[in-house]
């Protein structure tokens, strides 16, 4: 009995000490490990998007994150998508650079791979990675043929699967980025936008109901009485498109609510957008740039928003007359 007691005590003691030692090591190495991750991410981003001064990292899920690459003025100049996908032997982790329209690939960098050395592993060679520069997704892999257009690349001889895997991951990165930006191209995007807006509205004012009428919306209260109108609109300023959804009071006098949407190519951060949205609520229509108080650091987008609001206002008036 005494011996068994000793067994338990000794083991517990050893495990406790070991646990403490490990916890200490873990805590003291975390900073470095985190920094290494940051560094490898930054280096990869710099090599796929030119002229990056700063970036913002948005994790989409465990395997994908979007990095908004910005120049020294804080304007978005492109995106990096860090994404993990399946290869021939195991996972491949890529940094894929996209231009700011998310339409073409700027370049790719292989962060991690366990492909066969000398064969699949050649995905890290420059000539292979260079093929992706300027490529337009979805990218197709050709076997033993020279690419004919900017959506085709040539497979590595003897490593078709690894080559296809990389192209596949790049295509997935593109899809993820488009979903994130909410601009799936053409009609699809409007659909997504609408859904988001509907959801937003349900959450914000559970008692109100949006009913689609052609290009605009009628907003009813819970008794079915129409109380205001809503419309999607776009404005362009300084080459940037700004998408909004706004609701206007029944007498067309003022903005009741406004949402500046995902997919707008805006280069200001979320807080400033929120501030801008708040200020616009209750403003009388039509807007003029001068009667909107300027939010510091958001001048350009403000002009875009103002033009979007006025365009939407005009469209709404035309529809209802």
């Amino acid at each position: 009995m005494k011996n068994e007691f000793r067994m338990v005590i000794v083991l517990t003691l050893i495990i406790t000490i070991a646990g403490c030692l490990l916890a200490y090591t873990y805590v003291s190495t975390q900073d470095d490990i985190q920094r290494n991750l940051e560094n490898s991410m930054r280096t990869a981003l710099l090599s796929v998007v030119e002229g990056v001064e700063s970036y913002e990292n948005i994790a989409l899920d465990e395997k994908t994150s979007v990095l908004k690459a910005k120049d020294s003025n804080g304007n978005v100049i492109g995106y990096g998508v860090m994404i993990t996908g399946g290869g021939f032997q195991g996972d491949i982790k890529l940094m894929v650079g996209f231009d700011k329209d998310a339409s073409a690939v700027l370049g790719i960098e292989v962060l991690e791979n366990v492909e066969t050395p000398g064969l699949g592993n050649r995905i890290i060679e420059d000539w292979f990675k260079k093929q992706f520069e300027g490529a337009i997704p979805p990218i197709e892999v050709l076997k033993g043929q020279k690419p004919q257009n900017r959506s085709q690349i040539e497979a590595i001889t003897g490593a078709t699967i690894s080559s296809k895997s990389v192209a596949n991951i790049v295509n997935n990165a593109h899809k993820a980025l488009e979903t994130y930006l909410g601009s799936g191209g053409g009609g699809e995007s409007a659909g997504r936008g609408e859904e988001e807006i509907l959801e937003y509205f349900e959450k914000r004012w559970p008692e109100k109901r949006l009913i689609k009428k052609g290009t605009y919306y009628v907003i009813n209260d819970k008794s079915g009485q129409s109380i205001s109108y809503g419309i999607f609109s776009e404005g362009v300023e300084g080459g940037d498109t700004v998408k909004i959804f706004m609701t206007v009071s029944k007498n067309f006098s003022k903005i009741e609510d406004i949402v500046i949407m995902n997919g707008s190519e805006v280069s200001v951060d979320k807080e400033k957008l929120d501030e801008l949205q708040k200020r616009l609520i209750g403003e009388s229509l039509p807007l003029s740039s001068s009667n909107v108080e300027v939010v510091t650091g958001a001048t350009i987008i403000e002009d875009g928003v103002v033009s979007a609001v006025n365009k939407g206002f005009e469209a709404l008036k035309k529809e209802l007359k």
């Binding site: 996908g85 399946g86 021939f88 195991g90 996972d91």
Partner: peptide, 8 residues
Amino acid sequence: FSGIISLQ
């Protein structure tokens, strides 16, 4: 055998 399946 490698290549008969690929992890995607």
